[in-house]
Amino acid sequence: MALYEIFVTYKKGIFDPPGATAERALRNLGYEGVGSVRIGKFIQLEADADEVAVREMCDKLLANPVIEDYRIESVGEA
């Protein structure tokens, strides 16, 4: 079976409350060089499926194209 790693993040311009909170918290901890922090989801998927099919899975269920972008990486065999 193929192993895929999928990264789901909010689209640019969509406010990410947990990311913004982490950003503030890091600055409060004294990390002055911290820029933007965005928090997303990481999905490991084992499937007998090609990337086209995985893309369809993302569009249908794993991500919401209205608010989220995703990136699929094929990382070999499971």
Binding site: I14, F15, P17, P18, T21, N64, V66, I67
Partner: peptide, 17 residues
């Protein structure tokens, strides 16, 4: 209803967390 595309848009986490 938004996930089913019967209504537009989406509902995100409250900005206050």
């Amino acid at each position: 209803l938004t996930e089913a595309h019967l209504l537009p848009g989406a509902l995100l986490r409250n900005d206050t967390l």
